[in-house]
Design a protein around this nucleic acid. Structure first.
Lengths: 129, 129
DNA sequence: TGCATATATGCAAGTATTTGCAGACATTTA
DNA sequence: TAAATGTCTGCAAATACTTGCATATATGCA
């Protein structure tokens, strides 16, 4: 199999993991450091069993790693730059805005950015009518 | 709804579209310019009805745009930087390599970066889904 | 006009993901 | 040790995606 094909498959898997709103939010919450399941569940307003499931999927794919302390399980991103890369994807959402105004995007970007990380995001672009 | 939640949803949709190997390859093929359905189908070795379906999905989400000329429909990326951003995702695949060696990744990266056209570069590979 | 080519679309069957819930474990505390 | 807390896992129902195939539409040409 041509390596491009292999790589496309791997990439598709990567995208699949990240293509769930809850998981995206989890990754963004973990951007600033490790957190335990319950905190995450409260932040996202989700049942912690659900959060645990998402984390377990991400763990299986090595997006996050676990570290236990007492009865709590702390998770952290194995590749923190992942969060930045995801945010960059916002540039491509901008064009096709559907329920999201440019204001919303900037606000979201600012919020996520807020608590400090790295990277810069390239700016707008226009699509077609 | 908090804008972070909205943005996460939009991002998830974006990722969903891109989370199919065929679509990733299509995007990469279109990176170098517009192409018609048949050519794309031949490049990816897929039935053109399938390619057409993928393109139609991506069109609906404004990832690509169509331009007709005679009986052929040419497609191009509305946001060419999308292809680059996708390739950057390879960095996050590297860690979790499953069937893909760092060599494969570099090769794939080089091919795409370069002038990646047709197939032909095969790499040893073994089943491990 | 009739026929071939290029694309698009619809649908059904197969497959995968998501979600809610119930229980299972492990750890801490009374 | 029992009870409480934090997290994980399993399962079934609902939902969404993918795929193959048949058919529809549109264009070009003899």
């Amino acid at each position: 199999m041509p390596s491009r094909t292999i790589a496309a498959k791997e990439l598709a898997e990567l995208f699949k993991i990240v293509s769930h709103p809850d998981r995206i939010r989890l990754i963004e919450e973990l951007r600033t450091g490790e957190k335990d399941v319950k905190s995450l569940a409260e932040m996202l307003e989700l049942p912690s069993a659900r959060v645990s499931q998402h984390l377990s999927l991400m763990r299986a794919h090595r997006f996050v790693a676990e570290e236990r302390s007492g009865r709590r399980h702390f998770y952290h991103l194995t590749q923190p730059e992942l969060a930045d890369w995801i945010i960059e994807g916002l540039s491509f959402v901008e064009g096709r805005l559907k329920g999201l105004s440019p204001r919303d995007i900037n606000e979201a970007r600012a919020l996520w950015r807020a608590n400090g990380s790295s990277t810069s995001i390239s700016t707008p672009q226009e699509g077609s009518p």
